[in-house]
Design a protein around this nucleic acid. Structure first.
Lengths: 137, 137
DNA sequence: CTACATGCAAATGCTTTGCAACCTA
DNA sequence: TAGGTTGCAAAGCATTTGCATGTAG
């Protein structure tokens, strides 16, 4: 797979992939950088950005562009949805089955050629939910 | 509504609102700036950003944070979904009814306190669809 | 008049890129 | 050893912010 695209498996690239596969959070590039830096202290942030981009193009990982602002990365390449905390931006997987038929509903109704969809839930994670209630009183 | 929050209706603020309500595209801050500049040549981009933010906090307009990157603004404050062209980033409304029950499905299954959801379709607009087909052949 | 709003420019935050040195296949 | 990859730093782009001046109420 790497060979087809004339790409190499460097130490940096494989460790980025390994570290990402260890976690269930959906880290941003900077968070991946902090994780990888513990094993490769001299790696640069630019290398992390480049590799996350390449790995998602190869289909090894998934790039998430949720509404929170920064891009996040997910080792799980299966179609699934997410929940984002509006306060701390923590992102979890949403425990709900993919809406496989929903794109069909648009087929007749739009001039666009649909190729996919993203569904994102927003709310408060347990920690932030507590804190927000305190402030209200 | 402005009074409650000790806010003023300036010439800049009202023209930004007027111009946004004229269009069915979902312009970015910079696009709003270009529209408004035709009527107020000396307005600054910072003022446009500040007012779009304030107007969306007041509920006069809706701020869209789709996966495309930059924020977009919509005069239609009703709940509705969007389709984005992955090639040119054009954003249209998606002709599909809101999924009013979908948040209930998560109620038991997640530790998050859900407050909303966003559904975004992605695909090719008619113009980009043509161009992409040409390149393929 | 008062204090919210503006124009301008500088600063910020995330991400990308140019380049010489480096290392994988 | 060829050319993809790295570290470093600078650049890019959208957005925010500090401040003196302007103006709505």
């Amino acid at each position: 797979m790497l060979k087809e695209k004339k790409m190499r498996m460097t130490r940096q690239r494989s460790i980025i992939l390994e570290e990402l596969r260890k976690v269930n959070t959906h880290p941003s590039a900077d968070e991946v950088y902090e994780m990888v830096r513990l094993r490769l202290p001299r790696i640069s942030l630019g290398t992390v950005y480049r590799n996350l981009e390449i790995l998602s193009e190869l289909g090894e990982i998934q790039k998430l562009q949720l509404s929170g602002g920064l891009k996040r990365f997910d080792w799980d390449t299966n179609k699934h949805y997410h929940i984002r905390c509006v306060r701390c931006n923590r992102v979890d997987d949403a425990p709900i089955a993919p809406l496989n038929q929903i794109e069909d509903e648009l087929y007749e109704a739009t001039v666009f050629e649909i190729i996919g969809h993203n569904l994102e839930f927003v709310g408060f994670c347990p920690e932030c939910s507590k804190k927000v209630r305190k402030v209200d009183h």
